[in-house]
């Protein structure tokens, strides 16, 4: 989906549908299969399996303590899949454009810039994690808490250092808050179809499934 505005709206609608009921989540999952690259969106993100695994663990705990772990798992997993889709489908500058379009050139620019820098930081962190794995492999160090802890500390430290350097750089370039951006959005035919289709899972989530079939009859 090329239009960032439609993508955001669609993801919000589908997330609400998924959160509201299992039926809504299953319908949103079908939408995810039809309109996104599917499993490739997860493969692109090294964090995806971690978060999905974490959600599965929480669900197991809920289930073991007598709660509805299955419902939690289905709903949260679909919300995560939608989040990973939104993350992988974005283009650099999308959030800045979107934020300026929504909130204007002062606060909108600041929010958009912060979002863009955060996403860039996540990419850097992901790249550093990959490099660290290579370093572990080259040094024949076994992965474990004792070996990972210093590396994780180094990565966090480097992120702080990077943030400080970026802040200095912005200040040197004269940034004091707000800025000029002319948001541009491109839209293809499929964007509207995908966005419109996202309403169906919301209907499934709001109305009991049985009522939908009565209406259809």
């Amino acid at each position: 989906m090329q239009d960032a505005r439609l993508r955001l709206l669609t993801v919000i609608i589908l997330s609400v549908a998924s959160f509201m009921s299992v039926a809504g989540a299953l319908a949103a999952f079908i939408w995810w299969i039809i309109f996104t690259p599917g499993i490739r969106t997860i493969a692109k993100s090294p964090f995806a399996l971690f978060f999905l695994g974490f959600t599965a663990s929480v669900s197991a705990v809920i289930w073991l303590t007598g709660g509805d772990g299955i419902s939690y798992l289905v709903r949260m997993a679909v919300i995560l899949l939608l989040a990973f889709y939104a993350y992988t489908d974005r283009a650099p500058g999308d959030f800045l454009d979107l934020s300026v379009w929504l909130f204007g050139k002062k606060i909108g620019f600041d929010i958009g810039l912060a979002a863009e820098m955060s996403l860039q930081g996540m990419e850097v962190l992901s790249d550093e994690a990959r490099r660290t794995r290579v370093a572990f492999r080259l040094k024949a160090i076994k992965f474990g808490f004792r070996s990972i802890a210093p590396s994780a500390g180094l990565m966090i430290y480097s992120q702080f250092a990077r943030a400080e350097e970026q802040a200095d750089l912005l200040a040197v370039r004269g940034y004091r808050g707000g800025g000029m951006v002319c948001p541009q959005f491109t839209r293809v035919k499929g964007d509207v179809i995908a966005s419109t289709s996202a309403i169906l899972p919301l209907i499934f989530a709001i109305m009991p499934v049985g009522d939908i079939f009565i209406l259809l009859q």
Binding site: R131, T132, P150
Partner: peptide, 12 residues
Amino acid sequence: SMQFPEQHLTGS
């Protein structure tokens, strides 16, 4: 030996 030395760091 990778180009950037920080890429090899594993110790604090």
